[in-house]
Measured scan of single mutants.
Amino acid sequence: MALNTPQITPTKKITVRAIGEELPRGDYQRCPQCDMLFSLPEINSHQSAYCPRCQAKIRDGRDWSLTRLAAMAFTMLLLMPFAWGEPLLHIWLLGIRIDANVMQGIWQMTKQGDAITGSMVFFCVIGAPLILVTSIAYLWFGNRLGMNLRPVLLMLERLKEWVMLDIYLVGIGVASIKVQDYAHIQAGVGLFSFVALVILTTVTLSHLNVEELWERFYPQRPATRRDEKLRVCLGCHFTGYPDQRGRCPRCHIPLRLRRRHSLQKCWAALLASIVLLLPANLLPISIIYLNGGRQEDTILSGIMSLASSNIAVAGIVFIASILVPFTKVIVMFTLLLSIHFKCQQGLRTRILLLRMVTWIGRWSMLDLFVISLTMSLINRDQILAFTMGPAAFYFGAAVILTILAVEWLDSRLLWDAHESGNARFDD
């Protein structure tokens, strides 16, 4: 018995066209964080690309023209004298008006014999932002004059995390709450300039795509075929072959399989920071003279006294001054041990922890910024005066060393310790 099946006739004509040209192939790229070699397709503007294995951002879609970056830099340069030299806060102490600005706080630190601690604050609040705007201006002028731009481009990517104007702005709020127990506070004209400078700096850093600047100024022929001998440069993120001198053909720094002496430098910085954190938390970090009496505060006791007036601000200072430094030390110690013992479990967790400490590390400088600003506000000789204690130097040095330890660690070593050939990683 035959089955009668109805015929289905399409209502619209289906047209099949042959592909007349070869589909576009992607360029081969190595991930600078996990060293995976993959094919990167062509990316349009405002599109980002991520590593298929570790999800690290390979290409950032946010990109401004150099002219727009230069305009932002010149605007920031105009704001800087007002943000640093004009009063941020006014207080009335014992019937006398006192003005506080950024430069005055750094000068008070240096004047009291601790120039190293003052230079830490100076670099993060004044030096690094000033280098940022002058570097962008150098790129703008240098591109037109045919100057060598490689050193500036190499420095810009590392400079971003040292620009800490946003953290200093939080420190202004913390210092205001600490001082309000002794005097009446009012915002100064410099505060508005400083807030504007923070906003412009944040926007500029978020749109400063150094890798795209490398592509514009020093374009290189990408690798179009897969080759395990391809290496990625950690300076400019170019994937290719080393030249005859073993250097990256684009930025001219040595092109090595792994960062040289990464573990040794990381261990040295980490152990030194552990040693410095002990006096930083045991010795007094601030000293207040009130009517001839002397009151010393460690980091913890200062947080407890701050909690009596504002528990939320005390929580912020606790996280930045105690929780973050010790968390960074514990995480980095764990990561280094996992590399030495070739741990194969929990790779995803370790990668996330490394990215976390990379982002939060700079916030530990908050305590030094609060001390710097408070020193310029309260300084009335023996009637009422505020000065920093010996722990300030140890704390600042420990924070900087932990930042350097994270920067010096080559994250690809975590993958080397893991089993080879993993296309995915999980716990």
Rank of each mutant, 00 (worst) to 15 (best):
L3R: 08
L3C: 08
N4E: 09
T5F: 07
P6E: 07
T9S: 05
K12R: 07
K13W: 04
I14D: 10
A18M: 07
A18D: 07
I19G: 09
E21G: 11
L23Q: 07
P24C: 07
R25I: 07
R25D: 09
R30M: 08
Q33E: 10
C34H: 00
C34Y: 00
L37W: 05
S39C: 08
Q47F: 06
S48Y: 12
P52L: 06
Q55N: 09
G61H: 15
G61P: 08
D63L: 12
R68L: 08
A71C: 06
A71E: 02
T75P: 12
T75K: 04
L79M: 08
L79T: 03
P87D: 05
P87F: 09
L89I: 05
I91T: 05
L94T: 01
R97H: 06
R97K: 15
D99L: 04
D99P: 03
M103H: 03
Q112R: 06
G113H: 09
D114N: 05
F123A: 01
F123M: 03
G127R: 00
A128H: 01
I131Q: 02
T134I: 12
S135A: 09
G142C: 12
N143G: 15
L145K: 05
N148D: 04
L149Y: 03
R150M: 06
L154K: 01
L154N: 02
E157F: 13
K160G: 09
V163E: 09
D166P: 15
Y168R: 00
G171S: 15
I172L: 13
I172Q: 07
G173Y: 01
V174T: 09
S176E: 08
S176T: 10
S176N: 07
I185E: 06
A187S: 12
G188F: 04
G190N: 01
F194W: 05
L197V: 07
T201Q: 09
T202H: 15
T204V: 09
E211S: 12
E212C: 15
L213G: 15
R216N: 13
Q220N: 14
A223W: 12
A223L: 13
R225V: 13
D227M: 15
K229Y: 08
K229S: 13
R231K: 11
G240D: 07
G240F: 09
G246T: 13
G246D: 14
R247Q: 14
P249I: 12
I253R: 02
I253H: 04
R258H: 09
R259A: 13
K265H: 09
W267N: 14
W267Y: 15
A269W: 04
L271I: 14
I274L: 15
I274M: 13
A280T: 11
A280E: 11
S286C: 06
S286E: 00
Y289T: 06
G292W: 07
R294N: 03
I303M: 09
L306Y: 00
S308M: 15
V313S: 13
V313F: 04
V324I: 10
V329P: 08
V329A: 12
T334I: 13
K342Q: 12
G346R: 14
R350F: 13
V357R: 00
G361N: 00
R362A: 05
W363K: 04
W363Y: 14
S364D: 00
S364H: 02
F369V: 04
S372A: 14
L373N: 03
L373D: 06
R380D: 00
Q382F: 12
L384E: 00
F386M: 01
P390D: 10
A392Y: 00
A392M: 03
Y394W: 08
Y394C: 02
A398M: 02
T402D: 07
I403K: 06
A405E: 03
A405M: 01
E407S: 08
E407H: 04
D410C: 00
W415H: 12
D416L: 05
A417H: 07
S420P: 11
D426W: 10
